[in-house]
């Protein structure tokens, strides 16, 4: 089972710009399916998909599950807390056991970077990376791209990712996807939360959020994990908000209208001002809506669906 994307979707780093555009273009017709009264098309009928989540997730897991169900796939959810992992089973054994049940795809979230590739190298089923450690979260990157593209052409757009880039798989997938589609990319945050050598990936670095806001067309605000204080990366949430918070006061000084994004879940009053999150420039809920369409596109393409038939795949009941 391999089409235009190959067997798996492990990250955006190794996809071409054309492959990324193909996913976004394929997502367009699927957006409409979720707007129908009967939100179901038969494209993946008979396919079996396992959602394997070794880390807690609400949004991503539900988004994948809706995408699968709206494509008529049969799905099973496995959460780490209720699984054999708790009993000490290794990832490779988990993988082999799943494979032995003759599944078609695995959607996996895992706390270790590289875990998705590890799994993909060991099973013949398609693997979709739903977040591996601090490495990549490709469907989040794709839905962010789709959301920007809904508002403006990506090529030439200046996007700044603000916050804990060091620990962020969302940041890495965004950087690769944006660069491949011709955007200008910057990161901004305390230096203790920016990875060494990030400039070598082709991004600018801003030390102050005011400079980032003055430069950017789009601000993608990352979640600040509250545990970063205990581990000594930043002194306090209060100071983080004062120095790096994306606030209404700072946005009001921006030379142009900005698009404000956040992958969720948000810490209101930590990395983002509630007035910004709920304000007119926020596209945070559009991101969530687009997440389902992008995941439908990825599932459809990996299952061998023909991109040019995505419109038709929506079924005879189409308008």
């Amino acid at each position: 089972m391999s089409g235009a994307l190959g067997k798996d979707l492990l990250g955006l780093e190794h996809l071409s710009g054309d492959q990324i555009r193909l996913i976004l273009d394929t997502a367009e017709p699927f957006k409409e399916v979720s707007e129908r009264a009967i939100k179901k098309v038969p494209a993946l009928r008979g396919k079996t998909i396992v959602n394997l989540f070794f880390e807690a997730s609400t949004r991503t897991r539900i988004s994948f599950e809706f995408a699968e169900k709206r494509l008529s796939a049969d799905t099973v959810n496995v959460a780490a807390s209720g699984s054999s992992v708790v009993k000490g089973e290794t990832l490779v054994d988990t993988a082999r056991n799943l494979e032995a049940m003759r599944i078609d795809m695995v959607v996996m979230r895992h706390g270790s970077s590289g875990a998705a590739k590890f799994l993909a190298d060991r099973i013949v089923s398609s693997v979709i990376n739903a977040g591996d450690g601090k490495h990549e979260h490709p469907t989040q990157g794709l839905l962010d791209l789709l959301t920007i593209r809904d508002h403006r052409p990506i090529a030439g757009t200046k996007v700044c990712i603000v916050g804990d880039v060091l620990h962020s798989r969302v940041a890495r997938s965004n950087i690769w996807g944006l660069l491949k589609l011709g955007a200008e990319v910057a990161v901004c945050g305390p230096a203790s939360l920016l990875p060494l050598g990030i400039e070598a990936l082709g991004v600018q670095v801003f030390r102050r959020v005011e400079e980032a806001i003055a430069w950017a067309d789009v601000i993608n605000v990352l979640r600040l994990q509250l545990e970063r204080m205990q581990t000594g990366y930043i002194p306090s949430v209060r100071e983080y908000y004062r120095v790096f918070g994306v606030t209404m006061e700072r946005l009001e000084r921006a030379p142009r209208d900005l698009l404000i994004m956040h992958p969720g879940p948000m810490n209101r009053g930590v990395e983002i001002d509630s007035r910004v999150a709920d304000g007119p420039h926020s596209v945070i809920l559009n991101q969530v809506t687009n997440g389902v369409a992008v995941r439908m596109a990825v599932l459809y393409l990996l299952a061998g669906g023909k991109p040019e038939l995505a419109e038709a795949a929506k079924g005879a009941s189409d308008r």
Binding site: G133, L196, A200, L201
Partner: peptide, 9 residues
């Protein structure tokens, strides 16, 4: 280094 940054390790 750059490789650890890319790999997220």
């Amino acid at each position: 280094g750059v490789t650890s940054t890319r790999l997220g390790l």
